[in-house]
Write a protein that binds this DNA or RNA. Structure first.
Lengths: 169, 169
DNA sequence: AGAAGATAGTAAATCATCTTGACTATATTT
DNA sequence: AAATATAGTCAAGATGATTTACTATCTTCT
């Protein structure tokens, strides 16, 4: 959620309070979490828009997150749930939705009678291919804006940071 | 949503398909949007945990986003909605919730009879102060992991990128 | 001044996503 | 074999958001 501070709507009324905002509470607009959020949001927005333009009007953010945590070899519902940090019931619903829409399917897990594997249908795999087109385009645009090397190092830094965050939960 | 690829649960079954996953679809795990999302998510998680430990158990992600788009000088509901890119009705509900919880209040806008300004209560301002503590701690931790200068340049790069994204919607 | 249209907000119904609690069926451990 | 753990479902409900429709106020343009 936390989103782009509206440059369009300048702080209203009292110039005094507005001053306080700029000083003591300026951190609210510049802290790393917010910056990350805003850029990520821009990415998501552009990606979703591209998918829509390719005809994927039935794919939501939540759908994408489920698809993102499904591997081609098949993934158990429980693992999707753990991965997204949601309940198995929630994962079950979302998967059901994507199965109904034709992107995913479920097959019994041969190695465990209780479990079933969530896999991609042909339509689902085609979606992945289309999604990559959009992602590539956005990355190219970012790289143009930042310069190739800065963009590359941004990726490295994030990767590095992620390793630390995963090691220190 | 889109979350950390589960290192705990290695790709199951067919080594073949898993190979495909690693090659043709490796981008799913490394593209910039995903990296941004995961780091941002870590930040959010840590921040929320700290707020909980300080006793803020009634603050959700959505609450934070509303608080983040409210300025000390007062913000109109419409501006909050625009800012978060949600409907006025949705914003209204969330603000009502935070007013009920004592963090925000609404006062009539002296300059416009239709509008009212959403402002912080004392409790709300205290919350901001507490939130800053947590943010500072997380940033310090990230800086330790990355090195001060890399962390500083990460912030610069994100800021730079944001300027471009905002200029090219 | 007065009508037309824009803007701020509310009301009610509904949808999408996610949660908790209770349960079944299969696996694993002892 | 009994006890326990794991994979998943069912059902009810909370939260966050949307759409459609509406009122009240403000702005603009004759």
């Amino acid at each position: 959620m936390i989103s782009i501070p509206s440059q369009k709507t300048p702080p209203p009324a009292e110039a005094n309070t507005s001053q306080v905002d700029k000083d003591a509470f300026a951190w609210r607009h510049h802290h790393i979490g917010r910056l990350l959020f805003e850029v990520q949001r821009d990415f998501q927005f552009r990606s979703l828009a591209q998918l829509k333009s390719l005809g994927y009007t039935d794919i939501s953010r939540a759908s994408i997150s489920v698809i993102a945590s499904t591997s081609l070899g098949g993934t158990r519902l429980t693992d999707i749930a753990k991965n997204l940090d949601i309940s198995k019931q929630a994962a079950s619903q979302m998967v059901k939705d994507l199965v109904d829409k034709g992107y995913l399917s479920r097959t019994p897990d041969p190695s465990d009678g209780r479990a079933s594997l969530v896999t991609f249908t042909d339509k689902g795999q085609q979606f992945l291919t289309h999604a990559k087109l959009g992602v590539d385009e956005i990355e190219a645009r970012y790289a143009t804006w930042l310069g190739e090397s800065t963009f590359a190092s941004l990726r490295e830094v994030l990767l590095d940071l992620l390793e630390h965050t995963q090691a220190n939960p």
